[in-house]
Structure formats: structure tokens, C-alpha cells
Design a binder for these strands. Structure first.
Length: 418
RNA sequence: GUGGGCGUAGCUCAAUUGGUUAGAGCACAAGAUUGUGGAUCUUGGGGUCGCGGGUUCAACUCCCGUCGCCCACCCCA
């Protein structure tokens, strides 16, 4: 409060104590993506404004009112990325990645920026973790959905529900749009003013409306008659059922980004407040072409990092207990190179095994060390003084069980394997 | 962008309907405690009461503005 400067609205600092959870989820996500054949990609936060206008679409809320855009000193129009799919597409096309491989599986983790009014589960700088499957066949719809589903479970989310819809191919989508436009045009006087605006810009978005008076009109929209679910979509839902992935078909599910076609989906979770979508995605077969690349079919999804974290914790208070059990506190009892080196080297060996190292700089007595270890939330302590080091040993203490053992530093990892 | 609620210590909150030097718990630091921890006790550091202006002999308290936070709408992850 006494600070002369304040951060911008909706842009948070992620502090020690909280960051460990981020790292934990991130590590799990990376492992899961690797197991699915995905490689990480990182792209710049700033992209040409036109890239997002072309991909996400003029009529979308993101483009027409939520982007952080400005001109740099060279009068270039730049925008802080509001999502990742367009950036990945730009990078793949620009770097010619599809000339070296027929198809690609890419994942990303990073900050996104949208100039919205902050509220629960919505920040101006927020983070997404997501993936794109580029130029594989239609079976990738299933892969993408199975991947999010598995990943959410793997990161500790217990309950969530998957909704999906079929927007159809370009042709049928056009037909549906005109048919729906005709229908809503007739019912125009029963719709709210926002819906009338949507009727002009993008009819499908009317289905997003939550105003009570519009509901009867929306309910009766004869979507099924204009756009029966495609054969591929039926195959997809059957396969999901086979694999025990529960889902609900929701014909009113429409995404707010214009590049989607075909299968789209959204995952909602409890414990999030009004913004309860934790992940979303779908098929976008025309994007690469629209951006000047070859025509390649794609599908992808992204997960809201912050929302995932709050949902995980809301559903299970002990979700991040494992972080504590993987913490090792360093307790050197002497301020001399021999002792410090043994302790540090041993700890680094454990770090490679996935443990986190905690230590407090300075020289302390053993009792002070143990007190600090508690405060830092460590499960184990590595204790060594001149006595142990001279005998080539080191003490490993389990703070929870109050047990300890003297071992040789080289055998430290074996001591944690069982 | 629109609406509602809220800004006092790092955190959670007090301050007797305007009145001396703004308090407590938690947290933090030191000691009791020089190789075995979570407790307890003692002591200590911390505040331009979000910021600016106004009313008043006197403002944390009343008025206006402003900034920020929270929640919701819109929409999205």
C-alpha cells in the first residue's frame, strides 16, 4: 500500500507459496503431453494485430473490444496475444514446420491478455495450457478430447463435465446460418436487443444468450431439422462412450472464436463461480488456409490455468499435499565447504528425482534448522555436521514420522525408492 | 463498457454514533533453547487509516472526486 506504484488491474503477481502449485500442475501437464507425442512451442507475446483479426474474427468480442493493441515506434500494429491458436498457426506456417513433418502435435503454456473487466476466474493477464493437433485425420477430434479429459484428471481435477456440439462443415454451416437467420428474423420482436445485434453479425451466437425472455424462442429453434448431427460426430460420441468418457451433446454450444467448424467442446467444473468453463476447444479446418498456409485440418483445445487451479482446490483441499511430501530441507550444521558441499550435492541428486529443495541461508543450530524446516513445509531434512561428513555419512530425517537414518550420500536416491 | 459491495499493519479485522499517542489475533524478528522440530512465555520491528480535495477548533469516522479490489452482466479459458 505504501508502494508508489501499483500493478495494472487484473494483472496478478504469482508469489512463492502459490507458484509451487503452478509448477506442480505444469510439470504434470508436460509429462502428460509428452506421453501423447506432443512437443512444446513458445511464441512471442506480441503478434501483428491483423493475425488475430483474421483468425478470431471481426465479429468476435475478443477482437472488437478485448484486445490490448497499440502501435510501436515503427508504427506497427501489435497486439498482446488473447489466445494461442493463431500464434501457433503463424509460427508453423512461417517456419515451414509442415515441410519437415506431415503432421504436428504441439502444446503450450503461457500468459494471454484480454482487456475485460476482471471478476472471479477472469483476469486481464491469465494463463492457458493447451495443445494443437495439426494435419491429422478426423480421429484427432477424439484424441484431443481424450487428452483434455485425461489431463484434467491427471492434474487432480475430480469432477467436470464435457459438452460438445457439431457445427458442421462450411457448407452445412452456411445453410444452417441462413435457415436460423430466417427463423429468428420472424421471431425478432421477441428477442432482446443484444440478440438482434447477433442476428446481424453471427446468428449462432444467439444460442449463448442467457436472458430469460429469449429462451422460449431459442428452445424452439429447429436446429436439428437444418443440421442433423454428422456421421463423424456420431462416431465420435460412440467412441467416447466406449472409452468411458462421459459427455453431453449440447446443440446450443457455440464458440466465440470464428475459426471453429465441426466438432466443438467445452468443459465446465464446479467451484468456479460464474465463469465455470475450465477448458474449451474444437476443430478449425480453414484457419491455416486463411492465414496463407496450406489447407490442413486441425483441432485443439486450451485450459484456463487459474481456473483449473481454483477448481482443483475447491474440489479437494488436500489436492496439493504431495508438494509437501516431496520437499527436502537442507540442514548443514557447520559453515564449512566440506559440509555444505555434501549436503548440496546430495540434495541436487534428489532434485533430479523430482524433489524440491528448501533451505534457509545462514548458519543455524540443529533445533533452529528443524524449526525452519517445519515452517517451510518440508517433509524431509538432510542433516550433516563435521562428525557425519568425516565418516562419509549424512542423516536423512523424516519430519512427519520423526524417524531418521544415517546413510552414505551416494545412496540417497535408493533411500527414497520403494 | 454497465451495475452492486468494499478499501485501517504482510493477512483477518477492531477503534465507544467527529475528540489526546489508531488496537488485537495471525505472521515476522530476537531470546528462554550451542546436535533433534511443530508448543509455551518474554521482548521487539512494523501504519502518511488507498490517494487528492472539502466541511470542522478537531476527520479513520462526514461530503466530493479519483485509484484499486471483490462480485455480477456481457463474453470467454
Amino acid at each position: 500500500m505504501a508502494s508508489k506504484f501499483q500493478g495494472f488491474p487484473g494483472m496478478d503477481d504469482i508469489l512463492p507459496g502459490e507458484i509451487e502449485k503452478w509448477q506442480w500442475v505444469e510439470e504434470r501437464a508436460r509429462a502428460f503431453f509428452e506421453a501423447g507425442g506432443f512437443k512444446e512451442i513458445r511464441t512471442p507475446i506480441l503478434e501483428p494485430t491483423e493475425l488475430f483479426v483474421r483468425s478470431i474474427g471481426q465479429s468476435s468480442d475478443i477482437v472488437h473490444k478485448e484486445m490490448f493493441s497499440f502501435k510501436d515506434r515503427g508504427e506497427r500494429d501489435m497486439t498482446m496475444r488473447p489466445e494461442m491458436t493463431a500464434s501457433v498457426a503463424r509460427a508453423v506456417i512461417e517456419r515451414g514446420l509442415l515441410t519437415q513433418a506431415k503432421s504436428l502435435r504441439l502444446y503450450y503454456v503461457g500468459p494471454m491478455f484480454r482487456a475485460e473487466r476482471p471478476q472471479a476466474g477472469r483476469k486481464r493477464q491469465f494463463h492457458q495450457i493447451g495443445a494443437e493437433i495439426i494435419n491429422e485425420n478426423e480421429a484427432s477430434d477424439f484424441d484431443a478430447i481424450a487428452l483434455v479429459h485425461g489431463l484434467l484428471h491427471y492434474t487432480g481435477l475430480k469432477e467436470f463435465s464435457l459438452n460438445l456440439n457439431d457445427l458442421g462443415d462450411e457448407e452445412s454451416r452456411k445453410k444452417v446460418k441462413t435457415a436460423l437467420a430466417d427463423y429468428f428474423e420472424k421471431e425478432k420482436n421477441r428477442l432482446c436487443k443484444d440478440c438482434r445485434w447477433r442476428l446481424e453479425k453471427n446468428v449462432l451466437r444467439i444460442f449463448d444468450c442467457k436472458i430469460a425472455e429469449c429462451q422460449p424462442v431459442i428452445e424452439k429453434a429447429p436446429w436439428e431439422q437444418f443440421a442433423p448431427l454428422g456421421a463423424n460426430f456420431r462416431k465420435l460420441t460412440a467412441k467416447l462412450a466406449d472409452y468411458g468418457i462421459p459427455c453431453k451433446v449440447n446443440r446450443r454450444l457455440v464458440r466465440g472464436l470464428d475459426y471453429y467448424n465441426g466438432v466443438v467442446f467445452e468443459i465446465t467444473a464446479s467451484g468456479l463461480g460464474a465463469q465455470n468453463a475450465v477448458a474449451g476447444g474444437g476443430r478449425y479446418d480453414n484457419l491455416y488456409q486463411d492465414l496463407g498456409g496450406a489447407a490442413v485440418p486441425c483441432t485443439g483445445f486450451s485450459i484456463g490455468f487459474e481456473r483449473l487451479l481454483t477448481a482443483i482446490q475447491a474440489q479437494d483441499e488436500k489436492a496439493f499435499e504431495e508438494i509437501r511430501t516431496r520437499r527436502v530441507y537442507l540442514a548443514p550444521l557447520e559453515d564449512c565447504a566440506a559440509v555444505l558441499n555434501v549436503v548440496r550435492e546430495t540434495a541436487l541428486r534428489l532434485r533430479e528425482k523430482g524433489f524440491r529443495i528448501e533451505m534457509s541461508p545462514g548458519v543455524f543450530s540443529l533445533s533452529q534448522h528443524l524449526k525452519k524446516a517445519d515452517k517451510l513445509g518440508a517433509r524431509y531434512a538432510l542433516i550433516a555436521g563435521l562428525d557425519e561428513v568425516s565418516r562419509g555419512k549424512l542423516v536423512v530425517k523424516d519430519l512427519a514420522k520423526r524417524e531418521q537414518a544415517e546413510i552414505e550420500p551416494e545412496k540417497i536416491t535408493a533411500c527414497f525408492e520403494q
